[in-house]
Write a protein that binds this DNA or RNA. Structure first.
Lengths: 332, 332
DNA sequence: TTGTAAGCGTTATCAC
DNA sequence: GTGATAACGCTTACAA
C-alpha cells in the first residue's frame, strides 16, 4: 500500500497524492476529494521513513531523563509529550538510570534516528556524552548553567522556595532547623544545600553542621538521615530535605520513633511529587514546576529547529506548598 | 556525512562500508579496520530512516499505556524498554490518558513510523482502535482475553492474590470485610470485584452490598469510599481496595476520622505500587508483577516479528505482600 | 573479497 | 492544477 497504489486508483500522479497528504492548496477540491476517498478505502498510511529520508527532518524529538521510576520524571515526560503531540511531533524517550555511559548511547541512538532535537532532562550531565550531538542536532538541558552558551538550558532557581519555607517555619516558631542533604557529587543536590544555607543565613538562622546529614536521595536514605538527626543531643524541631523521597523516609523514621509529625517535628520536602499529597500527613514541600520545565524545554527545541540561536530560557521558580507536615513548634 | 563520504575517504565502495557497519564477515580485516577508522574520524552516524526504508523493518517497537502519571506504569515502561534495549530495539512510547480516541491516533502514528510491533498496555481496549494495525503490525495486549486468537495477549489472574489476602485477614480474625470497587465500565476493575467476591464465597465469607463502595480509582475516590464505609451502622474491620491509589485514600480517611490503621481498621491494596512501601503504615497489598508483564509482552512481540503465530503467553500470577496496614481484629 | 547499481516510498523541482 | 522525475542514504543481489 504505497503512494503509487493510491495514485493509480485515484487516476492521478504520486505528486498529487503527496500534495493532498500535505494539505497543499494547489489541488482542485474535486481531485483532492477523490484522492482522500481512495486513501480511506485502502486504509493507506504514509511511510514516515521515506518521508523523513526525503525531507531531512523526522518530526520527532528525543527526550532523555535520569530514571523513569523516580516519580519526579513522569510528569515531565507527560508535559513534554503533550506539547509535542500538539504539533504532530512524536517523542522517542529513553532513560539513563543515572549512568553517564548510558547517556552517551542514548544520544547516539537518537542521532541515528535523526531526531530534530534532544531534551536532556537528567540531573547530571557530562560534557563527553553531549559530544555526539555536536553540530548535528540542537540540545536543551535542564538546570545546567555550566553549559550555557554552548547548549540551550532551562534554568531553575531554588532560593525563593527555601526562603518561603524558612519564613513559614519561623512564623511557626522554629529556629532549630536541620537539613537532609544529598551526595555532594550530585550537582543539583549540592546547589540545593548551598541555597538552603544561604537562605538560613539571610534569615539569621544558624546552620549547625551536626544538623546536616547526607542521604542517598531515596526513601531509605531519608529514614537513615532522620534517625541520625533524632539521635543528636538536641534535635532540630524542623527539618528540610533535599527531595521529597527522603522527606518521606524522614516521616517514617519519626513515626517509628513513636513521635508525630507535625506535633513533635515539622518536615518539609522538595519537588512536590504527586505522592507528597498522598501520604499522611500530607507533605509540606517546595514545588519544582516540572510541567513548566518540560514546556520551556520543548519550546526551546522548536525554536532551535527554526534556526534560532542558542538562548537561555526564562528562569523557572520554586515556591512553597504548605500542607500538613509542618506545625507550631512544640513548647518545651 | 553519508556513507558515500565514508566510502570515498576509505577508498572502498559504499557496499563495503555497509558491510562493515552491519558486521558482515565477508570483509578483510584490514579493509574493515580502515573503514572503522574513517567512521570514527568523521564521527559518522548511519541514517536509520534510509536503513528502515530499505530493509522494511525499523528495529523499533511501540508501547502504549493508559497514563504515565499513574504510578502503575513507569515500571512497566522501564522493563519493556530495558528488554528492548538489550536487543538494540528502540521504543516509541505514548499514552492515551484513558481516551479510546487517543488510542486510535497513537496506533496510527506508530503505524506511520512503521514500528515492528506494538504493545498496548492500557487497561481498556476497544476493537475499533485496533483496526488500524490489522495485517500491518503485530500487537500484544495486556490482560484482554476478549481478543484472544486475534491478537497476542498477556493474561493476568487475580484470584491467587485475593485468596491469599482473605486467608491472611481471616487468620487475623477478620470476618467483616469490605471492598472498594472501581467503575463497572472499567473491565479490569469489574474483574477484580468479581474475583474478590468469588474468593470471599469460597472462604465462606459473606459479601455485603453495603460494604462495597465504588471509587474513581484515584486517591480521592478511595478517601470518599472509605468515609462511606465508616458511616455504615456497622463498619467492616478490614477493607480491600481495587487498587493501591484508592487504598491510600482509605488510609487518609481513616486517619482523618481519628482512627488508626491497622489497630482500628485493616486495609489491603492492589498493584503493589512503589509508593505502597513509602507510606506510614506501609501498605499490605496484592502484587501485580508489572515487570513480568512487560517482559512477556516484549518476548511475544519479538516472536511475532520472527513470524510466529498468535499465541497466548503464560499467565501472570498475583500474590499477597504483607506489610503494616493489616493487623489483628480489634476486640469488641 | 570487493564493486556496481537498483530500489525502498516519499517530496520537490520543473515542466506543461 | 497536475504530472514526470530526480533525489534522500542505505542495503543487497549480482558481477567481477
Amino acid at each position: 500500500m504505497d503512494i503509487q497504489e493510491v495514485a493509480k486508483r485515484a487516476k492521478v500522479s504520486t505528486a498529487t497524492v503527496s500534495r493532498v497528504l500535505n494539505g497543499s492548496p494547489n489541488v482542485r477540491e474535486k481531485t483532492s476529494a477523490r484522492v482522500r476517498n481512495v486513501i480511506a478505502k485502502l486504509n493507506y498510511v504514509p511511510n514516515t521513513h521515506a518521508r523523513s529520508l526525503r525531507v531531512g527532518r523526522a518530526r520527532m524529538f528525543g527526550l532523555i531523563v535520569s530514571d523513569i521510576n523516580n516519580p519526579f520524571f513522569p510528569e515531565l515526560i507527560d508535559a513534554f509529550q503533550t506539547s509535542a503531540a500538539e504539533q504532530g511531533i512524536d517523542v522517542i524517550f529513553m532513560h539513563t538510570n543515572y549512568d553517564p555511559k548510558r547517556l552517551e548511547s542514548c544520544m547516539r541512538r537518537m542521532v541515528e534516528r535523526s531526531v530534530d532535537g534532544i531534551a536532556v532532562m537528567t540531573s547530571e550531565v557530562e560534557q563527553a556524552a553531549l559530544q555526539i550531538a555536536h553540530e548535528r542536532v540542537p540540545l536543551v538541558l535542564m538546570n545546567q548553567p555550566a553549559f550555557a552558551g554552548e547548549h540551550r538550558n532551562v534554568p531553575v532557581e531554588y532560593s525563593t522556595g527555601f526562603r518561603e519555607a524558612l519564613e513559614h517555619l519561623r512564623l511557626l516558631g522554629h529556629t532549630n532547623i536541620g537539613f537532609i542533604s544529598g551526595p555532594s557529587d550530585f550537582s543539583s543536590a549540592k546547589r540545593r544545600y548551598q541555597d538552603w544555607a544561604t537562605a538560613m543565613r539571610r534569615l539569621k538562622l544558624s546552620v549547625r553542621k551536626d544538623w546536616v546529614v547526607t542521604g542517598n536521595m531515596r526513601v531509605d536514605g531519608g529514614e537513615y538521615a532522620m534517625r541520625e538527626l533524632m539521635s543528636r543531643e538536641t534535635c532540630p524541631t524542623a527539618v528540610l530535605s533535599t527531595n521529597d523521597l527522603m522527606a518521606l523516609g524522614a516521616l517514617q523514621a519519626v513515626s517509628h520513633a513513636g513521635l508525630r509529625v507535625p506535633q513533635d517535628i515539622s518536615i518539609i520536602g522538595f519537588d512536590d511529587l504527586p505522592i507528597a499529597s498522598m501520604v499522611v500527613p500530607q507533605l509540606t514541600t517546595i514545588e519544582l514546576p516540572r510541567r513548566e520545565i518540560a514546556a520551556r524545554a520543548f519550546s526551546s527545541l522548536v525554536e532551535a529547529t527554526r534556526g534560532g540561536i542558542v538562548t537561555e530560557c526564562d528562569i523557572v521558580r520554586t515556591k512553597l506548598v504548605v500542607r500538613g507536615s509542618t506545625g507550631l513548634v512544640r513548647c518545651s
